[in-house]
Design a protein around this nucleic acid. Sequence first.
DNA 1: ATAAACCTTCCAGTAACAGTAAGGTCAACG
DNA 2: CGTTGACCTTACTGTTACTGGAAGGTTTAT
Lengths: 140, 140
Amino acid sequence: MKAQSKVSMKISQLAKVTNVASKTIRYYEDIGLLPAAYRNDNGYREYGNNDIERLVFIRRCRELQIPLEQIKTLIVVQVDPKSSCQEVDALIEQQLDKVRKTIAELTLLEQTLHTLATSCPNDKVGDCQILKNLQQEKPS
Amino acid sequence: MKAQSKVSMKISQLAKVTNVASKTIRYYEDIGLLPAAYRNDNGYREYGNNDIERLVFIRRCRELQIPLEQIKTLIVVQVDPKSSCQEVDALIEQQLDKVRKTIAELTLLEQTLHTLATSCPNDKVGDCQILKNLQQEKPS
DNA sequence: ATAAACCTTCCAGTAACAGTAAGGTCAACG
DNA sequence: CGTTGACCTTACTGTTACTGGAAGGTTTAT
């Protein structure tokens, strides 16, 4: 069992250790992704260890481009010990699908752009093959 | 010399032939990407051949994910016959760069997601490897 | 005392539209 | 002649995930 060390820090400290901007932390609180922070006497937000963990979790999910709304549901599942992690599996799988589809699309796009980029040997706009190509329907 | 056939159509017709939503066409006019359309007696917008070409050009650029602001500059270059097409070249090249960078990023992301997706053989949240992984810093 | 470096809330802006409301117009049908 | 349906108009809001800035309070150091 880990000792529950009682760290306490202000928002910019939390921002530094989690690598999430203060502004973003407040935003997450606004939209209910983070619980309302404890406030000390002067009204400043105070944070502890749990907040670090929660924020790191969120940041990791964001790095995987998981939308905030889905992170919300992940957190709900996470804190409920009797829920199955099928939902988590599904969400990650779905995210993977999305990323793969995007890669496929962008790869086609890369082809098109490359073809286009190498299509114009001229330097006057009147003769520009790029512009001419862009004026026509896709030859797909 | 091409005959300047005098077609005339309303916005939904233009939308159909160019495959750009009426709403989007109005939006393009609002932001100055399209010139203010001619209005007939009842105040409806009327369009001709030039508008088709211009819109197809814009759509093609959008398919290449070129931002509207850059399309604006492309159009300026396009209509000025004495400008060089270096700017066009550069823009396409730049777009290609961006796409390639995004592909690279997404490919890494795909790896991470794939590893994550196959990391959890359990079905209770308490043991879920996916969640555990997400709670930690990236092991990069 | 004052300046720097924090903190607070609130409002606006980003990109590229899509949705909706409220209302005007036009052609056809009965 | 009335009305229905399919258009058209403007204007406003919502989307996603923040970021920037204004205006003001607090704390710390000099």
